Amino acid sequence: AFSSEQLARLKREFNENRYLTERRRQQLSSELGLNEAQIKIWFQNKRA
């Protein structure tokens, strides 16, 4: 489960760009304390 802070950040990123570069995913992973797979799957689900 994502914290409300993490979700807000993911939604902001998604609004700016529906697709993440690998580098951006790595940055978000480290900033949010999530693993890259969690972020990747969140974006895939959000696009679906």
Results as ranks from 00 to 15, higher is better:
residue 1 A to L: 12
residue 47 R to T: 10
residue 14 F to H: 02
residue 16 E to M: 08
residue 22 E to D: 14
residue 44 Q to N: 09
residue 31 E to H: 03
residue 13 E to G: 01
residue 48 A to N: 11
residue 3 S to K: 04
residue 2 F to M: 10
residue 43 F to V: 01
residue 20 L to T: 03
residue 19 Y to M: 08
residue 30 S to Y: 13
residue 4 S to A: 13
residue 36 E to Q: 07
residue 35 N to Q: 11
residue 48 A to G: 08
residue 10 L to I: 02
residue 39 I to C: 03
residue 45 N to P: 02
residue 15 N to V: 07
residue 41 I to T: 10
residue 33 G to C: 08
residue 15 N to P: 01
residue 43 F to T: 00
residue 6 Q to M: 06
residue 29 S to D: 01
residue 28 L to P: 00
residue 6 Q to L: 05
residue 26 Q to L: 10
residue 23 R to Q: 15
residue 12 R to W: 10
residue 34 L to K: 01
residue 39 I to K: 01
residue 17 N to M: 04
residue 20 L to C: 06
residue 28 L to V: 03
residue 27 Q to H: 07
residue 47 R to I: 14
residue 17 N to W: 05
residue 18 R to L: 03
residue 36 E to W: 05
residue 26 Q to W: 06
residue 35 N to T: 15
residue 6 Q to I: 11
residue 25 R to Y: 13
residue 3 S to F: 03
residue 16 E to V: 07
residue 25 R to Q: 13
residue 10 L to Q: 00
residue 1 A to I: 13
residue 36 E to K: 05
residue 38 Q to S: 08
residue 27 Q to W: 09
residue 40 K to M: 15
residue 38 Q to W: 11
residue 21 T to H: 04
residue 8 A to L: 09
residue 40 K to A: 15
residue 10 L to M: 04
residue 9 R to H: 06
residue 27 Q to D: 09
residue 29 S to N: 01
residue 19 Y to I: 11
residue 37 A to N: 13
residue 41 I to L: 12
residue 34 L to P: 00
residue 9 R to T: 07
residue 40 K to T: 14
residue 24 R to T: 06
residue 40 K to V: 15
residue 42 W to G: 01
residue 38 Q to P: 01
residue 37 A to V: 12
residue 28 L to Q: 00
residue 18 R to P: 15
residue 2 F to P: 05
residue 24 R to A: 08
residue 14 F to G: 01
residue 17 N to A: 04
residue 24 R to N: 04
residue 28 L to A: 00
residue 9 R to N: 04
residue 33 G to Y: 03
residue 13 E to M: 04
residue 46 K to M: 15
residue 44 Q to I: 07
residue 22 E to R: 14
residue 2 F to H: 04
residue 39 I to T: 01
residue 4 S to H: 12
residue 43 F to E: 03
residue 19 Y to T: 08
residue 34 L to R: 01
residue 27 Q to V: 11
residue 17 N to D: 08
residue 31 E to M: 05
residue 45 N to D: 10
residue 4 S to T: 12
residue 30 S to G: 08
residue 38 Q to N: 05
residue 35 N to I: 06
residue 14 F to W: 10
residue 36 E to T: 06
residue 34 L to F: 02
residue 14 F to P: 01
residue 17 N to T: 05
residue 10 L to C: 03
residue 33 G to W: 02
residue 15 N to D: 14
residue 1 A to S: 13
residue 42 W to H: 02
residue 5 E to V: 08
residue 48 A to W: 08
residue 24 R to M: 09
residue 45 N to L: 12
residue 21 T to M: 03
residue 21 T to E: 05
residue 9 R to Y: 05
residue 13 E to F: 04
residue 33 G to K: 06
residue 31 E to V: 05
residue 1 A to V: 12
residue 17 N to Y: 06
residue 2 F to D: 01
residue 13 E to Y: 05
residue 6 Q to V: 11
residue 46 K to I: 09
residue 23 R to V: 12
residue 7 L to V: 08
residue 22 E to V: 13
residue 45 N to I: 11
residue 17 N to Q: 05
residue 43 F to I: 01
residue 23 R to S: 14
residue 48 A to F: 08
residue 43 F to N: 00
residue 43 F to L: 03
residue 44 Q to H: 09
residue 22 E to Y: 07
residue 14 F to E: 02
residue 2 F to Q: 03
residue 2 F to S: 02
residue 39 I to N: 01
residue 27 Q to L: 12
residue 25 R to H: 05
residue 12 R to Y: 08
residue 6 Q to W: 03
residue 20 L to Q: 02
residue 37 A to R: 10
residue 16 E to G: 05
residue 2 F to T: 02
residue 16 E to Y: 07
residue 46 K to V: 10
residue 21 T to G: 09
residue 6 Q to F: 02
residue 19 Y to K: 07
residue 11 K to F: 13
residue 46 K to E: 15
residue 4 S to Y: 11
residue 14 F to Y: 09
residue 28 L to G: 00
residue 25 R to K: 11
residue 40 K to I: 14
residue 1 A to Q: 12
residue 28 L to I: 07
residue 18 R to F: 05
residue 15 N to C: 12
residue 36 E to F: 05
residue 16 E to A: 07
residue 15 N to G: 09
residue 17 N to P: 02
residue 43 F to M: 02
residue 24 R to G: 05
residue 44 Q to T: 08
residue 37 A to L: 13
residue 43 F to W: 15
residue 15 N to Q: 13
residue 9 R to P: 00
residue 33 G to N: 10
residue 32 L to H: 01
residue 7 L to F: 03
residue 19 Y to D: 07
residue 24 R to W: 04
residue 8 A to C: 10
residue 1 A to M: 13
residue 17 N to G: 05
residue 16 E to N: 09
residue 46 K to L: 11
residue 46 K to G: 07
residue 27 Q to N: 07
residue 23 R to G: 12
residue 13 E to N: 02
residue 27 Q to G: 05
residue 46 K to N: 12
residue 36 E to P: 11
residue 31 E to C: 04
residue 20 L to V: 05
residue 11 K to Y: 13
residue 40 K to N: 14
residue 32 L to Y: 02
residue 31 E to L: 06
residue 37 A to W: 14
residue 12 R to E: 13
residue 26 Q to Y: 08
residue 48 A to P: 04
residue 19 Y to P: 05
residue 34 L to G: 01
residue 40 K to R: 12
residue 41 I to H: 13
residue 13 E to D: 03
residue 15 N to L: 11
residue 33 G to P: 00
residue 16 E to Q: 11
residue 47 R to V: 11
residue 39 I to G: 00
residue 45 N to M: 13
residue 37 A to M: 14
residue 11 K to N: 15
residue 7 L to C: 14
residue 29 S to M: 06
residue 17 N to C: 14
residue 22 E to H: 12
residue 3 S to V: 03
residue 28 L to S: 00
residue 5 E to C: 07
residue 4 S to D: 14
residue 32 L to N: 00
residue 41 I to G: 10
residue 38 Q to E: 11
residue 12 R to P: 01
residue 4 S to M: 12
residue 45 N to G: 07
residue 33 G to S: 06
residue 18 R to W: 10
residue 40 K to S: 14
residue 20 L to A: 04
residue 40 K to E: 15
residue 22 E to A: 14
residue 23 R to Y: 12
residue 21 T to S: 12
residue 33 G to T: 03
residue 42 W to Q: 01
residue 22 E to T: 13
residue 8 A to S: 08
residue 30 S to C: 11
residue 36 E to A: 09
residue 12 R to L: 10
residue 8 A to M: 09
residue 38 Q to R: 06
residue 36 E to M: 06
residue 44 Q to K: 09
residue 3 S to H: 04
residue 5 E to G: 08
residue 22 E to W: 07
residue 44 Q to F: 08
residue 17 N to S: 08
residue 45 N to Q: 13
residue 10 L to Y: 00
residue 30 S to I: 14
residue 31 E to G: 02
residue 13 E to A: 12
residue 47 R to D: 07
residue 5 E to Y: 08
residue 26 Q to R: 13
residue 7 L to A: 04
residue 20 L to R: 00
residue 32 L to S: 02
residue 20 L to N: 02
residue 39 I to F: 01
residue 21 T to A: 04
residue 22 E to C: 08
residue 37 A to H: 12
residue 9 R to I: 11
residue 32 L to R: 00
residue 21 T to R: 03
residue 25 R to S: 15
residue 18 R to Y: 06
residue 22 E to I: 11
residue 33 G to M: 06
residue 48 A to R: 13
residue 38 Q to L: 14
residue 15 N to I: 10
residue 29 S to I: 05
residue 29 S to F: 03
residue 27 Q to Y: 08
residue 41 I to D: 15
residue 11 K to I: 15
residue 9 R to F: 06
residue 3 S to N: 10
residue 23 R to N: 13
residue 26 Q to G: 07
residue 32 L to M: 07
residue 34 L to M: 07
residue 43 F to A: 00
residue 26 Q to A: 11
residue 39 I to A: 01
residue 9 R to Q: 06
residue 22 E to Q: 12
residue 41 I to P: 00
residue 23 R to P: 09
residue 41 I to M: 12
residue 39 I to M: 03
residue 3 S to Q: 04
residue 30 S to H: 13
residue 14 F to C: 06
residue 45 N to S: 09
residue 25 R to I: 15
residue 26 Q to M: 11
residue 47 R to Y: 09
residue 15 N to R: 10
residue 33 G to F: 04
residue 20 L to F: 03
residue 18 R to H: 11
residue 47 R to W: 13
residue 32 L to E: 00
residue 18 R to C: 13
residue 11 K to G: 11
residue 10 L to A: 01
residue 43 F to H: 00
residue 41 I to W: 14
residue 27 Q to M: 11
residue 38 Q to V: 14
residue 26 Q to D: 05
residue 25 R to T: 15
residue 6 Q to A: 07
residue 8 A to Y: 04
residue 19 Y to G: 05
residue 41 I to N: 15
residue 34 L to Q: 00
residue 24 R to I: 08
residue 47 R to K: 07
residue 42 W to L: 03
residue 15 N to Y: 10
residue 1 A to T: 13
residue 9 R to K: 07
residue 24 R to Y: 06
residue 38 Q to C: 12
residue 4 S to R: 10
residue 19 Y to F: 13
residue 32 L to K: 00
residue 48 A to I: 11
residue 37 A to T: 13
residue 6 Q to E: 04
residue 36 E to G: 07
residue 44 Q to E: 15
residue 21 T to W: 04
residue 48 A to V: 10
residue 41 I to Q: 15
residue 21 T to P: 07
residue 42 W to K: 01
residue 23 R to M: 12
residue 36 E to C: 06
residue 42 W to F: 08
residue 19 Y to N: 09
residue 23 R to F: 11
residue 27 Q to T: 10
residue 23 R to I: 14
residue 16 E to W: 06
residue 47 R to N: 14
residue 39 I to W: 03
residue 46 K to F: 10
residue 28 L to Y: 00
residue 5 E to N: 06
residue 8 A to V: 07
residue 17 N to F: 06
residue 21 T to Y: 03
residue 32 L to W: 03
residue 8 A to Q: 09
residue 29 S to H: 03
residue 45 N to F: 08
residue 23 R to K: 14
residue 15 N to W: 07
residue 44 Q to W: 08
residue 24 R to K: 11
residue 34 L to I: 12
residue 7 L to T: 07
residue 28 L to H: 00
residue 22 E to N: 11
residue 42 W to S: 02
residue 33 G to V: 03
residue 10 L to S: 00
residue 10 L to N: 00
residue 15 N to M: 12
residue 30 S to Q: 14
residue 47 R to P: 03
residue 4 S to C: 14
residue 45 N to H: 10
residue 13 E to C: 06
residue 9 R to S: 06
residue 27 Q to A: 10
residue 20 L to E: 05
residue 6 Q to H: 06
residue 38 Q to Y: 08
residue 36 E to S: 08
residue 8 A to F: 04
residue 17 N to H: 09
residue 46 K to P: 04
residue 14 F to A: 03
residue 35 N to V: 05
residue 22 E to M: 09
residue 30 S to F: 14
residue 5 E to H: 09
residue 48 A to D: 10
residue 34 L to E: 00
residue 38 Q to T: 10
residue 45 N to A: 11
residue 31 E to Q: 06
residue 14 F to K: 02
residue 19 Y to R: 07
residue 48 A to M: 11
residue 7 L to W: 03
residue 14 F to D: 01
residue 11 K to Q: 15
residue 9 R to W: 04
residue 32 L to T: 08
residue 35 N to C: 08
residue 4 S to L: 11
residue 12 R to T: 09
residue 23 R to E: 15
residue 38 Q to F: 10
residue 42 W to T: 01
residue 30 S to K: 14
residue 12 R to G: 05
residue 34 L to H: 01
residue 13 E to Q: 03
residue 16 E to T: 08
residue 13 E to H: 03
residue 9 R to A: 11
residue 3 S to M: 04
residue 36 E to R: 02
residue 19 Y to L: 07
residue 3 S to Y: 02
residue 37 A to S: 12
residue 37 A to F: 11
residue 21 T to C: 07
residue 47 R to A: 12
residue 21 T to K: 04
residue 7 L to G: 02
residue 10 L to K: 00
residue 25 R to D: 02
residue 37 A to Q: 14
residue 7 L to D: 05
residue 46 K to H: 14
residue 33 G to Q: 06
residue 14 F to I: 03
residue 33 G to R: 05
residue 4 S to Q: 13
residue 34 L to N: 00
residue 16 E to F: 06
residue 31 E to T: 04
residue 14 F to Q: 02
